[in-house]
Nucleic acid binder design. Structure first.
Lengths: 219, 219
DNA sequence: ATGACTCGAACTGTAGTACAGTTCAACTGT
DNA sequence: ACAGTTGAACTGTACTACAGTTCGAGTCAT
């Protein structure tokens, strides 16, 4: 910690700030999946020029929360069974690959800590926090792969998934969540990589199944 | 194949076309790593408005060929030892994870075909094509993971790597390339997953080592 | 010469206006 | 009920303008 810590000039552009703000709003549910982001309306409301909004939305596109359709502009992503399945397949591949490795001590600690955080959240019962901690636990597992690029890729998927979970208001009892993750953690801590892989696979299978049911129910 | 195949109206925007064109130019070496993409100059040269160029460049950012720096605009990515290493680490994780699986027959065929294409290119001696076929071979391996999202992620990394290889004009003898890949293919075809993983690891190790030397030599 | 400093040209970031082409829902006529 | 028409809203693109930033060239002191 230096004496100049936290001192930083405004090293960001208006468009970047708008992108951050919009991402927040979308995650908070201000825009639902499939909604269009109307440029003039947003520009007027926020008091910025339309081209600045356009840039902000292009930046948003980087994070994957919206995609562009020709002549329809930016549209908030919407979960379909195919998309959810593809997302979970990629998660499964990365997490099992990670579980097949031997974590370094500090990685094991990080995973354990993530689990404890999850337990604490489960005690409070705050669903949003539980989901966040849940996802953070899995991110800690992927970190065992020791690849920043894969960490980033996984984080981007997590952001997308977080949004889907919010809009689908997926809910399971905190006890279930903790129980499932404890199985994974135990297997990892025991150094039983085959079991860890199997537990992760099972966990992801049940999750994707639940989500698909929720998706069907919506239609 | 329907009777309407290939019939499609211009389902794209000017900005998208510009992004594609710029990507091509960059890959062809019109802009070197670290070069800035000056908006006014490009806009004037191509006869489009500056904001359209800005959009095109934002789209380009999606593919990872350029990144933005505040008040300096778009800058073509430049390989550093850290970046190259991170890239190859991610490749290693994905490819070994794929090699640890049992490929389906058609996947095995695809890999074999990719190898044959590589051999054919090696015979002609065209370095650019060899690199392309080399990368396609590895993409075919990753396809064994059966995850479209990971396929896409890997493809994006490949594009980035292709650019680095071009600007660094990496060269090894075609015989070497074919020999190394034959080892990998043989291990996969033999169903010896441990050996396949080991061969891939070795192949990537030597590649990254060569690249690092090239990078040092540049400085 | 060397290094610190100043200045200005070039460029980015943002605002604002304009308009042709597209989308989509409401309206119309059958 | 249904095909066709119309118009409002919106996107894609162009153009202009200007404040703030960057960076190299020139200047000055050492």
């Amino acid at each position: 910690m230096s004496a100049l810590d936290g001192l930083a000039v405004r090293r960001t552009t208006t468009a970047q700030q708008l992108a951050d703000g919009l991402a927040e709003r979308i995650m908070a549910g201000a825009f639902g999946p499939g909604d269009r982001l109307r440029e003039s309306a947003i520009a007027a409301e926020l008091g910025v020029a339309r081209n600045t909004i356009r840039e902000a939305v292009r930046i948003l596109e980087l994070t994957g929360l919206v995609r562009y359709e020709v002549n329809r502009g930016a549209v908030v992503i919407a979960p379909t069974p195919e998309i959810v399945e593809a997302l979970y397949t990629a998660r499964e591949r990365l997490e099992t690959a990670a579980a097949a490795r031997t974590p370094r001590p500090e990685q094991l600690d990080a995973i354990t800590e993530a689990f404890e955080n999850l337990c604490a959240a489960a005690d409070t019962g705050d669903l949003g926090t539980i989901v966040d901690r849940d996802l953070a636990f899995h991110q800690a597992i992927v970190a065992v792969l020791d690849s920043t690029r894969l960490d980033e890729f996984y984080a981007a998927m997590t952001k997308e998934l977080r949004f889907y979970l919010t809009v689908l208001s997926k809910s399971e009892t905190p006890e279930e969540v903790v129980a499932q993750h404890r199985l994974i953690l135990d297997a990892i801590r025991a150094g039983d990589r085959d079991r860890a892989v199997a537990e992760i696979r099972a966990h992801i299978d049940t999750s994707v199944e639940q989500l698909k049911q929720l998706l069907d129910a919506r239609r």
